[in-house]
Design a protein around this nucleic acid. Structure first.
Lengths: 211, 211
DNA sequence: TTCCGCATCGTCCGAAAGGTGTATTCCGGC
DNA sequence: GCCGGAATACACCTTTCGGACGATGCGGAA
């Protein structure tokens, strides 16, 4: 049924847009119908152009995050499929994108054949995950000991900001003891014994995002 | 004297390589003589092909860092100019690249005209800095209170890894009190009063690199 | 229903970290 | 030749953090 797959490209880097444009050339069933350089523009263009597939970068400069743009696009009525295409393969990025409703997740270091296959899969609604991403997700369900509860992640986020236990307790309307208890659990799950080490491990695993 | 500028492209992402390739097309004085996907290959190709300008990405995947590759290339005898072209504009990246001997520093979100001009400047040996990079360097000399000494940066790096003062002292062959003294100076310069806060501020300012 | 994970609160104590003050050596700039 | 910053080191004191206990309520899964 599909004659051509209409594609919208959302990325803030001209170099990357140019590169993807070049990788889409020569594929007769692909048609690049639009490009956007930031999240707001991407959401607007998706609503206007009604593409079949949106290629979405996650880091979109100063504006809204790619996962937020993805959420807004997939909650629209046009039902385009969003294929996340980004440089970073940390857990936080992957989970945020999938939770936002992305159909697939590809890394930018993927060869062009993989990109083509993923776009065609996404157009049919099938999910497409990069191998490294898929294995990471599998590793997650196989090794749940690294899973922090939402509350623990919240505490850890404040720790990463440099707040003391007392400051965190006031910020979260808790007693300082409760903050310490959460930290004890976090240390046990991450296999560390100090707050800075916990931040380091969590950052490396992508449980919290830097900056 | 320059008939054509011979260019070597070093980047681990096929998408980015494709994009830069497209942006170099149509410029009659440019000739892309080679591409490399990682640091070692880039150094080898630079020695073999003797290009005029090397376009160098900083984040090169699992291998050596782009600044290290830059250092090896510019210490060779062919004297190619290295133009760093990367996504990240943090202080640590900029300083490391310039210190390694890069001729210029461009961000990937630069338009193609800026890229062309930077390549032509680099070919003549003139330095080319992206406006945001230049302003950041100017801001640095104007506000030297944020400047950490190399030793202090080394200590801070170990703190960011999650090491305790005692562990850092052993790692650096120092006494624990010396580590603490360095930390006191770091806190004063960064305007914080705890190790985690120091890591947070330094990461945000780009003084240390995440992960 | 029972059990387990999550979230919450508490105490006690030793260890680690932070704050302040002081000191020596070395090196480069004025 | 002197001054200042960087790097090294120490003593003393206070605060915070982490470890080791325990305890409660709640909700979902076995």
């Amino acid at each position: 049924m599909s004659t051509t797959i209409r594609i919208l490209l959302v990325d803030d880097h001209p170099v990357v847009r140019s590169g993807i444009r070049a990788m889409l050339l020569g594929q007769p069933d692909f048609e690049l119908v639009g490009e956007a350089a930031d999240g707001e523009e991407g959401v607007a263009e998706a609503a206007r152009l009604r593409p079949d597939v949106v290629l979405m970068d996650l880091r979109l400069g100063p504006g809204i995050h790619g996962s937020e743009a993805t959420r807004r696009i997939v909650t629209g009525d046009g039902t385009p499929r969003v294929l996340v295409l980004t440089t970073f393969d940390t857990d936080a990025d992957i989970l945020a994108a999938i939770e936002a409703g992305a159909t697939g997740y590809l890394l930018k270091d993927a060869p062009s054949e993989e990109l083509h296959a993923a776009i065609r899969s996404a157009a049919t609604g099938a999910s497409a995950l990069a191998p490294s991403v898929a294995s990471r997700l599998l590793g997650r369900v196989r090794a749940p000991e690294g899973t922090l509860s939402p509350r623990e992640l919240e505490v850890l986020g404040h720790v990463a900001e440099g707040l003391s236990n007392r400051q965190i307790s006031k910020r979260m309307f808790l007693s300082e003891t409760t903050v310490k208890t959460h930290l004890v659990h976090i240390y046990a799950k991450l296999g560390v014994d100090s707050r800075t080490a916990a931040v380091a491990v969590a950052t490396r695993r992508g449980l919290i995002r830097p900056s």
